[in-house]
Write a protein that binds this DNA or RNA. Sequence first.
DNA 1: TAGTAAACGAGACGGTACGTCCAGTCTTTGC
DNA 2: GCAAAGACTGGACGTACCGTCTCGTTTACTA
Lengths: 208, 208, 208, 208
Amino acid sequence: MSEGPRKTRGVHRGPRSRRIVESVREATIAELVRVGYANLTIGGVAKAAEVNRTTIYRRWPNKQALVAAAVEPLLETYEVDPGTGSLVGDLRALIERLRENLERPDARALTRVLMLNIPDLHDVVYASGERTIGAFDRAFTSARARGELGPEADLEMMSHLIFFGMLYWLIRHERFPSERECTRMLRVALASAPGVEVPDPAPADGSS
Amino acid sequence: MSEGPRKTRGVHRGPRSRRIVESVREATIAELVRVGYANLTIGGVAKAAEVNRTTIYRRWPNKQALVAAAVEPLLETYEVDPGTGSLVGDLRALIERLRENLERPDARALTRVLMLNIPDLHDVVYASGERTIGAFDRAFTSARARGELGPEADLEMMSHLIFFGMLYWLIRHERFPSERECTRMLRVALASAPGVEVPDPAPADGSS
Amino acid sequence: MSEGPRKTRGVHRGPRSRRIVESVREATIAELVRVGYANLTIGGVAKAAEVNRTTIYRRWPNKQALVAAAVEPLLETYEVDPGTGSLVGDLRALIERLRENLERPDARALTRVLMLNIPDLHDVVYASGERTIGAFDRAFTSARARGELGPEADLEMMSHLIFFGMLYWLIRHERFPSERECTRMLRVALASAPGVEVPDPAPADGSS
Amino acid sequence: MSEGPRKTRGVHRGPRSRRIVESVREATIAELVRVGYANLTIGGVAKAAEVNRTTIYRRWPNKQALVAAAVEPLLETYEVDPGTGSLVGDLRALIERLRENLERPDARALTRVLMLNIPDLHDVVYASGERTIGAFDRAFTSARARGELGPEADLEMMSHLIFFGMLYWLIRHERFPSERECTRMLRVALASAPGVEVPDPAPADGSS
DNA sequence: TAGTAAACGAGACGGTACGTCCAGTCTTTGC
DNA sequence: GCAAAGACTGGACGTACCGTCTCGTTTACTA
């Protein structure tokens, strides 16, 4: 026990441990994509990771923790701000980034997982949602700072509507909204902001 | 034995059978409220319904089917149209109905279930969502028929935004939006419809 | 056939009822041959007999009774005495009858059933065994009456040894004893009876 | 993880595992004695062994395998040869050993099990029977080696008749044959061997 | 670089639930 | 009204995971 001069103290960070952790993470995501959260089993992940089941339990206490840890790094994608200089530009850029993410099948699967209302997953999911929506919030805040939006504009609500409108269009229709649909959504959601114009999508060279 | 025509044909519809089916349905919902979908067990439902586990398996092949069958009748709540005579009135009435439903703990639990992305539940869930959103759609359609909305108004998008905006406000904040927040949401979401005014909530006896 | 305790009062005895009883009996034996006693199910018999499961339960209280009733008539095969005029002739005839029975697959299956030590089947089985062995006993008794066997001959024991020796040769070797083996068995088992000679089987025209 | 070849090889042989295996074996036999094979349940054995049902399934795939494994060691009782120096002495000793075994209720129950014609149990049963009969065979072989039996004696058949005659006397009469009956049986079965005398049982001090 | 803490692989265990099957009883149906 | 059809209770089956544990063995800190 803690008696006597310990020779080592910290956790292992050697190549083997790192390899294992990474291998498990990848396997977790792969399994998630393959069978979904409900059918995810520790044994399955262990086999896919070519690791012993026990090893997984040693590091992650249960399925939720495992998934949370595996999924976590993916959320950083949305951290950065686009910085296109205009509100509509920023939003379009964020939506584009969403699209890029969600059109990769693995991310699609992960998104489904993140939208599960599993109680134990709630924290990760909530954090993930807030982090992603945060990017939208920042786009609005920057726009106000630039003077694009007046003080009466309801930033929070616009951000909320656009984000969830986007996300659930995907869920409802099983596909990402088209350029046209994005434009429609932005127009409706931004209508309360005077002076903000949402031009037609690129291919159509429409003036306002 | 191949002795002539069969003597009976249909399934049982007697009082006992009916009682059992109903009892199981109630127990399923009660258990769903009590422990949630993830922890729902057929055995638990059977015990709560004072019915044998086998009896449940005879009628519903698995948990998904059981839950789907149990939940299905609840979706009819949203079928009727409020008919208040104005778009904002209708929307407020629908929101009010949502609130009434979602503030009852059992309906809360059911809503959570409906928002689970369980593959086998997908059909029921999708149908449920569409049915509910349908009420919003109809409110908009009626409004256009009454002349409240012009042909350029994007009914589908407004409906979509309001519905999912509402639903996910609940999820994000773990409470139903307040009157004030509903007003804000409606104002943002309806801003693109010229001529539609969203008055302050009732307590303030504001003029337009 | 011993139809067990009647479940209804006015049991029908018309052609239909008789047909059903017979059909069930045949199906029981067929199933017994097909799947064996352990895997015999009332449902299986009912299906094979094209009769409702309930119908079987109405007439036979349980599986054991059903099998007992179905098997019972088969035991009468061994009732009659061969009457060849000599002990060895009678025994050979009885063995021949055994062979005929046991080489038909259905009788093989039934024999297996009869050799199961199922408690509830014990009575039928015991009765069956005793009835069959009774034919051997009678052969010995007749022989003594004819003067072939003296008073010191242990009829009971010889009968016992020949019968079970026969039966378990079949079980052990998975085939009926050959003519040669029958001869050997008879010679050993009848050696204690002075004056009884067991000639070689027919094909070999051996001298004494 | 693909870290080279396997690091351990065998199953666990620690004291705990051994204890469990032994405990299950004892419980199996106890249950067999208590309720019989037909009513034996894995759950019952598990409870009696104070072990989880799963644990049993992990080691033995089903009831048959469990019983086979539990019963197997009991068969070794008959392996050794008596070595009394005379054929009749050896046979009497073997019969005595049979009696000792079969008069203990647990062995009685086991014997019943072994005589069940259950297909899945066939191998154990057959092996068991052959092993036991082997002791009788050896007694005859030794007798011939000693010159007690001439080359014309049908050892195999005598052994067969005595063994099954013995066993089924037990079954038929629900009790082990008495000394007197054993003597009668031996006399009849050994009559074909010239020079072999079967004296009266001990209590009667009869000369030949 | 040696010794020891930390991590790993393998196998097993107690548990819980699953979905299936069957025995035997009870309830509906329909002629 | 009654026999057939069908549903119900109860219990066992064999399977799949979960999360925990022990026991050797291997890895990688650190003195």
